[in-house]
C-alpha cells in the first residue's frame, strides 16, 4: 500500500508539474484529492491494514496528500499571478494619447492688463473710480481747463453726439466727477480705467476706441517729487524692480507742470533694442501737477491743496508687455489671438 501511495505521489506530482491551465489543475486536484479521488480510493483500503501498519501508512498518506496539495496551491498561485499579469498587460493604455482637459476660457488681454494695473494701485491705497462713456463737453473739456476754442482741443478730435455731448476722449472727466463728489474732502487717491474714443483712422498703432487708466491724487502738500516716487514704484511693480523712469517736459492743459514719462526699456535693460527703437526708453505715461483751474473747478482751493495726475494707454502697455505689434488685434477678437493670454 505504501508503494501504491508512493506511486500515486510520483504520478500526481509529475502530472501536476506539467499542468498548463487552471482547468487542468482543477481536474487533477479532483482526480487525486477529491472525495472520489485516487488518494481517497487508496485510503479506503486502509481498513484492511493491521493496527501497527495503519499509523505508518496514515503518515505516508498524509505526506502524499500534503505534497500534492502543496504543488496544487503553488500551481494555483502561479496561475493567479499569471492571470493578473495578463490582465494588467491587457489593460495597458497609451499614455501619450491626450487627456480630457478642464474647460478653459480666458480674460481678454486688455482686461488682464487693467486688472494688473488696478491691483498695483489698490496696493498703494488707491480706489477705482469709473464714469460714463458719453460725457458732456463740460466734464470732458471745460472742467479740465480746455475752454471752447482752446487750441489744444485739436489734439484730440472727438466723436460728438450733439454740440454738448460727446464720447469721452479721456477718462479725466471721472477725475472731475470724483473731485466734485468728494466735496473738498482730502486726500483723493483714485485711478480711473475705461474706454475712450478719438477720431483716428485705425492702423497698426491707432484705434478710434482704446482704453486709458488715469490716476489722481489730491492733498495738502502733494509735490512733483511725490509724482516721481509714485510712478517709479508703479513701473517697478509693473515692469520689474530694475525699471527706471525719466521725465521730459511736455504740455497738457489740465496739468502744470506737465511731463511725459519714459521707462527704461524692460526688454533690453536700457541698452537699446528694436522695442525701444535703440533709445533705451519707452514712452508710456503722461503726467503732471493738477492745474489750479482744474482744482478749483473740482472744488479744491489751489492755495491749500495740490495734486498730481497721470494717464496711460492700456493698449500701449499691453503691446509693450506682450510684444504685440498691431493694436487692431485687440478688437478683432480672433480666437487665435485672445487665447494666447490664458496662462500665468
Amino acid at each position: 500500500m505504501k508503494e501504491k501511495l508512493e506511486a500515486l505521489k510520483i504520478e500526481a506530482l509529475a502530472k501536476l508539474q506539467d499542468v498548463s491551465n487552471p482547468q487542468e489543475l482543477n481536474d487533477l486536484r479532483v482526480k487525486y484529492l477529491g472525495k472520489k479521488g485516487e488518494l481517497t480510493e487508496v485510503l479506503r483500503g486502509m481498513g484492511g491494514l493491521s493496527a501497527e501498519e495503519r499509523p505508518i501508512i496514515g503518515q505516508v498518506a498524509n505526506l502524499v496528500r500534503s505534497a500534492i496539495e502543496e504543488i496544487v496551491e503553488a500551481k494555483q498561485e502561479a496561475f493567479v499571478q499569471q492571470e493578473t499579469l495578463n490582465r494588467l498587460q491587457a489593460e495597458k493604455v497609451d499614455v501619450t494619447l491626450p487627456g480630457r482637459r478642464l474647460a478653459q476660457g480666458g480674460i481678454h488681454p486688455l482686461s488682464r492688463v487693467v486688472q494688473e494695473i488696478e491691483d498695483i494701485f489698490i496696493g498703494m491705497g488707491y480706489r477705482v473710480a469709473e464714469g460714463p462713456e458719453v460725457e458732456t463737453d463740460y466734464y470732458n473739456f471745460e472742467a479740465l481747463n480746455l475752454p471752447k476754442n482752446h487750441p489744444a482741443r485739436d489734439m484730440q478730435d472727438s466723436f460728438y453726439l450733439t454740440d454738448d455731448l460727446l464720447m469721452r476722449t479721456q477718462t479725466s472727466p471721472v477725475q472731475v466727477r470724483t473731485m466734485q463728489a468728494m466735496k473738498g474732502e482730502a486726500p483723493v487717491k483714485i485711478i480711473c480705467p475705461g474706454k475712450v474714443f478719438r477720431r483716428d483712422d485705425d492702423d497698426a498703432t491707432h484705434s478710434f476706441q482704446f482704453h486709458q487708466i488715469e490716476g489722481l491724487v489730491i492733498g495738502r502738500d502733494i509735490r512733483m517729487s511725490d509724482l516721481k516716487g509714485t510712478l517709479q514704484q508703479f513701473v517697478q511693480e509693473m515692469f520689474g524692480a530694475n525699471t527706471d523712469i525719466r521725465l521730459r517736459p511736455s504740455f497738457f492743459p489740465f496739468t502744470e507742470p506737465s511731463v511725459e514719462v519714459d521707462v527704461s526699456c524692460f526688454k533690453c535693460g536700457g541698452n537699446g533694442c528694436r522695442l525701444c527703437k535703440q533709445t533705451g526708453w519707452l514712452e508710456i505715461l503722461g503726467a503732471g501737477m493738477v492745474h489750479p483751474n482744474v482744482l478749483e473747478m473740482g472744488g479744491y482751493d489751489p492755495a491749500e491743496y495740490s495734486g498730481f495726475a497721470f494717464g496711460m494707454g492700456v493698449e500701449r502697455i499691453a503691446m509693450l508687455k506682450y510684444g504685440i505689434d498691431d493694436i487692431r488685434h485687440f478688437y478683432s477678437n480672433d480666437m487665435s489671438f485672445v487665447k494666447q493670454f490664458r496662462g500665468v
Binding site: R127, K189, K228, G229, L247, E256
Partner: peptide, 27 residues
C-alpha cells in the same frame, strides 16, 4: 514753476513718497 522746473531739469527733482494720511485701497 514749470519754466523753472524744465530749465533746472526734471532728473534733478528728488523721488519721494506721499506724506500724510494713508488711505485703504479697494474695489
Amino acid at each position: 514753476i514749470e519754466e523753472i522746473a524744465r530749465l533746472y531739469g526734471y532728473d534733478k527733482i528728488p523721488t519721494t513718497l506721499i506724506e500724510g494720511v494713508t488711505t485703504p485701497g479697494a474695489l
